[in-house]
Design a protein around this nucleic acid. Structure first.
Lengths: 245, 245
DNA sequence: GTCCGAAAAGTGAGATCACACTTTGCAAGA
DNA sequence: TCTTGCAAAGTGTGATCTCACTTTTCGGAC
């Protein structure tokens, strides 16, 4: 199972660096491009090291480079992309072990805080959406569908944090996922990672149902801690592979 | 004293919306504009409600609108600016009472964390810089120099958080100051605010000297808590004055 | 004196182009 | 066959222009 998840995204992603956006007519283009890239980064559809070219994207999306440039610069500001090398091309950044540890600590603090509040505030309608995302994740694991898993992994967490009703807090958490998201695709290749993670998700789901703030915080914290540990072992290999200069 | 601080910035700021940037030759323009606006926002040199025009700034700085637009959009992403009204003009956002409370809680958590680490890690050379910023703040209070105070208030906190050696954490804190910075100028008009705040600063300075992590966290937390309380009383007035639509 | 409406001025957004720079690729020479 | 060097292609950046839209202004009608 792990081998499946580990191999497929690498191949498909390197071939099509970016799945075309369905541009709705009438609305602003720049905001759409930004929102779409943000979503794609957070859910882990782009691999670390992947490069993005303004002209290439402009041709794909059928718009000029201007709005794309602005969108990518915004994401660069948030750490979701970086400008790389003497050629100064945009790419998805790799992460250092130190930075991973730092983000882990912040995430435990902030996502833990959000989970606590969510446990107290969540209402049945939202609870059903969370449960639905959980079911889809479990189905994705069974069907060995990496894309489906990643999409609903982000959706699961996002729905929980939304319930805390703290937009600024949610914004910061999203910004951290922007940095961490691309790594999840690497993590799910690690043996046992998915089982561990789904354990945490199930515990979080139960805690939310029981409105148990402490349990919710702990479940989220454990998920983050274990994922960081799994990633730490992978980082050395990929850092040399996609090596920064 | 408070009256002085409260009145002058309002008048001067409305006349010259943005003090010209000294553009260094040879380096990238967009990055400079972004960095300068970021600094100006964090230190509180721009007032909430103040409007910024691309063409006007372009004329002032002697460059085209393109890099300015990108810089302002970046700041909009971070919440430091907003697009306002049907005319869609950039301006410094006002803050709601709910958002202020939210940011207060996050700041206490994150800046408290950074202060703890700083207390353990800070070295004599950095300690001298912090003490220097503190002295300048005290001198600014005596001389009733709002600009000098604001500049060194941000510098004081920034130097402390830098000592924690957590770049990502520092980035998030800066982003919160981007949102909060413009309000400090309003807060220092409140009677007793400066004395309260300088008390906290002195306590923080002492805690850092003693490498007392708990005391450092508490000093910073108290500063944030009291500033938020002072601001809360002012918000209702200014919200109706600069009112959002 | 007041009010209405059209013209003028001002706003950001997106397309296009010239520029400086780096990387790539290929051909000529050793 | 290998190396060297130059041209071609590719990169992001900033300037300029047009467009759609909103706000302001000011003159004429009532």
């Amino acid at each position: 199972m792990q081998e499946f998840f580990a191999s497929t995204p690498d191949e498909s992603a390197s071939r099509s660096p970016f799945r075309p956006i369905a541009l709705e007519e009438g609305t602003t283009t720049q905001a759409q491009v930004y929102a779409e890239f943000r979503r794609v980064l957070m859910s882990g559809s782009l691999r670390p090291g992947e490069e993005l070219s303004l002209r290439q994207l402009a041709a794909t999306l059928g718009i000029s480079t201007t709005p794309i440039r602005e969108a990518l610069r915004q994401l660069e500001t948030e750490g979701g992309l970086e400008i790389h090398g003497g050629n100064r091309v945009y790419r998805v950044p790799m992460i250092s072990s130190a930075e991973l540890a730092e983000i882990r600590d912040i995430r435990i603090k902030l996502e833990g805080m959000a989970a606590e509040m969510a446990a107290e505030l969540i209402r049945p309608a939202q609870m059903r959406l969370v449960a639905n995302a959980f079911d889809l994740m479990r189905r994705a694991v069974e069907a060995r569908d990496a894309d489906l898993y990643l999409e609903n992994n982000w959706r699961f967490h996002s729905l929980i944090y939304q319930s805390a009703q703290r937009p600024t807090l949610l914004g910061i958490i999203e910004r951290l996922w922007l940095r961490t998201g691309p790594l999840v695709r690497l993590a799910i290749g690690k043996a046992g990672h998915l089982d561990q993670s789904m354990d945490c998700h199930e515990a979080a789901l139960r805690a939310l149902r029981d409105h148990d703030a402490d349990a919710a915080r702990e479940a989220v914290a454990r998920d983050i801690r274990e994922a960081a540990r799994d990633l730490d072992g992978i980082l050395d290999n990929t850092n040399t592979k996609t090596g920064r200069n």
